[in-house]
Design a protein around this nucleic acid. Sequence first.
DNA 1: GATGAATGAGGTTTCATTCAT
DNA 2: AATGAATGAAACCTCATTCAT
Lengths: 194, 194, 194, 194
Amino acid sequence: MVKKDKPKYKQIIDAAVIVIAENGYHQAQVSKIAKQAGVADGTIYLYFKNKEDILISVFQEKMAVFVNNLEQILSKDHSAAEKLKHMIESHFNLLAGDIHLAIVTQLELRQSNTDIRLKINNVLREYLLLLDQILISGMETNEFDQDMDIRLARQMVFGTMDETITTWVMNEQKYDLVELAPKVHHLLMKGIRA
Amino acid sequence: MVKKDKPKYKQIIDAAVIVIAENGYHQAQVSKIAKQAGVADGTIYLYFKNKEDILISVFQEKMAVFVNNLEQILSKDHSAAEKLKHMIESHFNLLAGDIHLAIVTQLELRQSNTDIRLKINNVLREYLLLLDQILISGMETNEFDQDMDIRLARQMVFGTMDETITTWVMNEQKYDLVELAPKVHHLLMKGIRA
Amino acid sequence: MVKKDKPKYKQIIDAAVIVIAENGYHQAQVSKIAKQAGVADGTIYLYFKNKEDILISVFQEKMAVFVNNLEQILSKDHSAAEKLKHMIESHFNLLAGDIHLAIVTQLELRQSNTDIRLKINNVLREYLLLLDQILISGMETNEFDQDMDIRLARQMVFGTMDETITTWVMNEQKYDLVELAPKVHHLLMKGIRA
Amino acid sequence: MVKKDKPKYKQIIDAAVIVIAENGYHQAQVSKIAKQAGVADGTIYLYFKNKEDILISVFQEKMAVFVNNLEQILSKDHSAAEKLKHMIESHFNLLAGDIHLAIVTQLELRQSNTDIRLKINNVLREYLLLLDQILISGMETNEFDQDMDIRLARQMVFGTMDETITTWVMNEQKYDLVELAPKVHHLLMKGIRA
DNA sequence: GATGAATGAGGTTTCATTCAT
DNA sequence: AATGAATGAAACCTCATTCAT
């Protein structure tokens, strides 16, 4: 059994999400995470190389859920437009259902230093490549504008989603994020359709 | 004469931009900023309440240029679509012309803690309100879709611009940002037009 | 059967010598010694009270060889001068033949804290008492100066040997230590002979 | 005025000697040294790069006194034998007069890691070169055996002195170290004279 | 007897801010 | 107004030792 499969590994990851969300990135000391996880400080270091490793693992583990979801969506026999819709809904659903995670990914983890941010970006890249697949397939079926710049389209889709979620988090989730999904989809579709 | 008009005030602001851009947010110590500005550490505190005050002031001072530009654009007798185009071009132009500033606003300042980020968002709000004016005027003239959600449209426009600029900065400005402006405008127009 | 006679006892002692020699005193963690010995960390504590006990036992076990050798030398029917010569040769030989041990006793073990060093000195005392016997016998037979201070003479003999070996170890054994023995003996003899 | 000339520099050096002597090398925390010196912890770092720098500086500053003394002795118009005598007396005198320093140099500083020990050895080298000068001059005037190996002779002289002082320190200075100087000199002279 | 996962105390260093000059 | 020396709080990580299995 590898470390990642041991119960304490996930226990610590989940504790980190809670502690970061509730205390902020810079107030998320290792000792606080250990306490929240119900283990000794030193135990953390049996499962993670250092604090940076915890933070990157948090992002990796959680991002994996997003990637898996998106892979599911891609595997279904739907139109590109529908896939995009499912992507937005699924993305919004996941974050609306885990406020702690939303706070961590949209606000707190972005305060990390450049090293960690670069590693986080590598994890994110996998997700964006799947988004590119949707865009490319839509262009091939002529659902989406065949002349559009993929990179710009991706930046519009992801930038709009990201901005929407961050605004929602910053406004303390006063309104329903999931309800916005169809509207966001509609807006984006107009931008990219043929 | 208020503090903001004294030469050392701007001197420190400019020093902060340079130091943050060249060293990164977490390596931008007050003493470094003081040295770059050519003043003593203690002098900083004659012009700023604390370090947070410097960072917010940096954003305020620089954002003012963006707001002024946008006000100029709004005052001209153009269509909403043209105003949007000028906005994107002007925004991209300003940042492409001051790499230090681009690095600071797109990457480094986002590493600040949530408190500072919320205050920065307040400063940003003024700019976004002007963007809303363009969107509203476009909807009134039926250039833009009258059924669209203003907030979402704003998030799409700003999110796309922001994501585009950040990607450009992260890629070390290998390509021409300003050249992308028409394409971004075209993409966004498709999304929001009637 | 007492603990010292069990195979794992010597196994751990030998592992400690290797680990200390190869990693240095401050990098010789109990877990490394356990790994080198092929036992679990906890097993160490079935044979030794604590880490300090390992280090002192290392010195005791290895010093016993020196003491045995010297007892052999003393038992032979030689002049005091010859005994001294054999002592130096034997001492140099043993260390030249076990570089790990030389590094540990001359360099690494001296980095231990004062408590351990005092206990090591107690172990060393037995060896120095045998050296004193050589000196006394030489004074009785008028081979050595009958007016000399035994303690000082012992410090000169041991200090010179020790400094010579340490210099040799520090110089990465670039030259032949054993070859120096006659010269050291000659030098010391001049100092102590009648 | 350079840092070394400022009063706090020497204040911290002296505090370090006292704290190390009284608490042992491994219990000489920076905070203890700061407290003993009557400054804040952070102040230490205005004068020293890090803890290692304090320890090396302690040795450098104190060793400088030994080197200066020895240079004085060398400059006098005495025989090599007399110079050696003065060296031993001066060396013993300095340490007998500053028990804290004796404990630090003979016992505590030797517990430092290999990095620091190497740097300390570089400082010591200067002293040993002056000792070599005495030996060489004695050989030139035929006071000392012209056939002897300089390195061995140096190791005998320094090893004997070192062993004598360490034994005295370890025995809690129960007897008079300075009284031993003539005897040590006599013993060494017999060993090296022509 | 043997294991090895878990424990938790403890210290160096940075840096925003102050205040005597 | 300007200086810059001094302050001191705060946290990541290591590793000897234990004890349930």
